[in-house]
Write a protein that binds this DNA or RNA. Sequence first.
RNA 1: GCGCCCAUAGCUCAACCGGAUAGAGCAACGGCCUUCUAAGCCGUGGGUUGCAGGUUCAAGUCCUGCUGGGCGCGCCA
Length: 589
Amino acid sequence: MIIASLTRSVTVGFSCPFLLLQAKASLFMKPFIAEILSQTVDRLKAEAVFPADFNPRIMVDNTKDKRHGDLATNLAMVSAKAAGMPPRDLAERLIQALPETDQISKAEIAGPGFINFFLSSSAQTAIVPEILKQAAQFGRSQTGAGQKVQVEFVSANPTGPLHVGHGRGAAVGDCLCRLLEATGWDVTAEFYYNDAGQQIANLALSVQARAKGLGPDDQGWPEDGYRGDYIQDVARSYMAGETVKADDIEVTGAADADDLESIRRFAVAFLRHEQDQDLKAFDVGFDVFFLESSLYDEGKVEETVQRLIAQGHTYEQDGALWLRTTDFGDDKDRVMRKKDGGYTYFVPDVAYHLNKWQRGFKRVIDEQGADHHSTITRVRAGLQALDVDIPEGWPDYVLHQMVTVMRGGEEVKLSKRAGSYVTLRDLINEVGRDATRYFLAARAATSQLTFDIDLARSQSNENPVYYIQYAHARLCSVARQANEKDMPWDRDAGEAALTLLVHEQEQALLNQLARYPEVVELAARDLEPHQIAQYLRDLAAAMHAWYNACPFLVEEASLRNARLTLAMATRQVLANGMSLLGVTAPEEM
RNA sequence: GCGCCCAUAGCUCAACCGGAUAGAGCAACGGCCUUCUAAGCCGUGGGUUGCAGGUUCAAGUCCUGCUGGGCGCGCCA
């Protein structure tokens, strides 16, 4: 469903947004070099070095090692066979046939046949005025072309406070929304409340038991009751006749321990309110809160069941209604309607996703914990069985692996029923919002994650997020110092003097800055927010190294202004990147 | 038993649709503040990328088979 995708290496002839910007070749050097290489291939075709129908994938990569120049291509190696000559010889021919350009200062053969490109000074520094001109817009694109995309995440049951696992979902999901929005998508962030079904009944019974003064180990405590202390808070508030608000509802406790329905409504509202507070503290917002109960209330579940029956994908057996999901790749069929007449959870899930489709979301991303991965096949199968032209493989899923919590050197086992719990609120209070967000979003979702609370708390000053924030704060401080020392930044003078930025650390920093738009594009394409976190660490490292190597507030005005200009561009990109992670960019620390 | 995810430095993790000498942080050791914030910088040590094959000019990355771990496999959600 990715409409305009960007290849990691630019491939000529592939749909690539950067190629539309050839007029700004100096800003986006990868496609520029890919283009001149394409021209070079054409020349060598004319000279019969390549067969006339030869059409290689031209790839231009960033180099890892500065000695290999700024950008490199493996074209000679992948084309050696077609040209019938050794890679290094072919590389020599390619270099000789390169068009003249002032963007490249040197192109040389290296290793087994790489061609390394060294950018000219003007090509390297051109990014700086562009950053300052675009400011907060720098790095944003129109790749998504304004298309609608829905991201569903967190979707915790309203049966308890949010825990660390929800926190990971919140951090990753929110960053996905920010990334998609930054790349031109029309994003709807949505939270699905499972506020119907057995677990809610358990919740109500648990609160009722607490309201009657029972504890988890007492006679009469519900069998699958929630044992956590927070249940007591709910009961106390209910019996005190308090009023709670959540999203669009407001419920006042009836203070009647025998009115189970009233308890249920109050408990759900209470816990939704708690979760809303947690999310607010985490700076995670949603556009839509969707209630599972509304699917029942509006007959959508029943409609979905009837549609599945009408399409002939169901059968009765053992007193239950089954969906033949094995027709759609599942390893066994699934019960839709239980003996007792109730629906299994996946039926409203299918109804919910049908609703998403009907709302016009051609692209939907569900961010979930990997422990729910078995629902993917079932939901997709149910949607196919509906036969309403939903594409196979819709919707997309981003699954995050489990979070292991360490406290006091031991793993904390999360159990909602047992009440053993590390809440998201605890983490925010103990570790801080920025550090918690960064920690949870900075690693690939596919990696299991160990969150050591003691470490995160006791060494909070050494958390990587402070390293990045400090880089930003330092540059802000430089700007303040410049004013205090009566040598304020002259942007025009600085932009005119950028070719003075020849120090090794300045070159490295310019390189990092030029990467940013592509990093955003790739992180959004791959749905991997951790790429942003990784990049920011690299950018901050380049900045700190430069800071230590080069004084800014020097006497010579042109050099001073050139460096201040680079500093302000760097500050801007740090701020832009941090905003994609939802991390604050402090002006002082 | 079947399915999904994973295995990289002592620990936590990166590694750009396969590319050059696999990188950071933490931990260890040695240097750098009369000068823009030392929450920083510079340097040293640390690896058979779980094992065995295969594809390729080139494999941590792709394929197959093992081993080890997490999760799932309910008429729970």
